[in-house]
């Protein structure tokens, strides 16, 4: 057991005016493995990601990444610290080729200065070559290497999601946030992506995902937290979650309501 969790949200809340989107949320994502966050639509799941990646400030509570408080850090600083994410509504760079998309993710890792850039020094060339090779490797992880020089806009929906995954990995994250990675995919694509996420997890990345697809979540995640109306209502392994009365209530409605009706 590691002493420090990968990501720790303590009493985190986020209000939009009078609307309490998140209230006293406590989540602990341990290092390694796949952690799932589920909940009905509008429960506040994506807001958790937006707070964690610095797109929104919290209204209260603290978020720690490997023990370090990330309050006030800008998105690019949080990315450089080691958190990467994908989006529910895909946000790849459509006019760039696949390989350029991935290399953009390595921006902060390319070590050369203005002189190296202007004079195309040996350092510059070796850094750019390394980036290109690494980008091909990452594209092959999601089986898109054969399309490396295509324009990203021409990819199918499922392929765009996988490109976004490769691009997120290019930032060399320790923690990877996936926002509904299989939304809009057919079952064949889902199975394929499940394999790819397992492989990525096996390579040592910690994965924290939001997902609606119960089968997908139950099949992949060792730990699951359930969010409903901005509060965590249950946490535990897949079996615990499946049998938790509060979770069943949140998803299916209360059992005794139907009894009363009878």
């Amino acid at each position: 057991m590691n002493a420090l969790p990968m990501l720790q949200l303590q009493n985190v809340s986020r209000h939009f005016g009078g609307l309490k989107v998140l209230e006293d949320v406590n989540i602990e994502v341990p290092e390694g493995g796949v952690f799932g966050l589920i909940g009905p639509n509008g429960a506040g799941k994506t807001t958790v990601f937006n707070l964690t990646t610095g797109l929104l400030p919290t209204s209260g509570g603290t978020i720690r990444f490997q023990g370090r408080d990330i309050a006030g850090m800008k998105p690019h600083q949080i990315t450089q610290a080691g958190i990467a994410r994908t989006f529910q509504n895909i946000r790849i760079f459509k006019e760039m080729s696949l390989i350029e998309n991935v290399i953009v993710g390595m921006h902060a890792k390319l070590r050369y200065g203005a002189v190296g850039l202007l004079a195309a020094t040996a350092r510059f060339r070796s850094e750019e070559r390394r980036a290109r090779e690494r980008a091909h490797e990452l594209l092959s992880w999601v089986r898109l290497d054969h399309k490396a020089h295509d324009v990203a806009d021409n990819l199918s929906y499922g392929e765009q999601r996988k490109l976004e995954l490769a691009r997120a990995l290019a930032t060399e994250p320790k923690l990877l946030l996936l926002d509904e990675p299989v939304a809009g995919m057919n079952s064949g694509e889902k199975t394929e992506l499940m394999h790819e996420i397992r492989n990525i997890s096996a390579r040592g990345y910690t994965i924290f995902m939001i997902e609606h697809d119960m089968r997908f979540v139950m099949g992949l995640c060792e730990h699951i937290a359930v969010l409903n109306f901005g509060r965590i209502i249950a946490q535990g392994g897949p079996d615990e979650i499946r049998n938790d009365p509060q979770v069943i209530e949140a998803y299916l409605g209360r059992e005794d309501e139907s009894e009363v009706a009878q």
Binding site: T53, L55, K74, P75, H76, T79, Q80, A84, R85, F87, R91, I92, F93, K94, E95, M96, E100, V104, G105, H107, A108, K109, R167, A170, T171
Partner: peptide, 14 residues
């Protein structure tokens, strides 16, 4: 180029 296409995504690329 990344900023021109999507500023938010560019920030999250570091």
């Amino acid at each position: 180029e990344a900023i021109r296409e999507d500023e938010t995504a560019a920030g999250l690329m570091g």
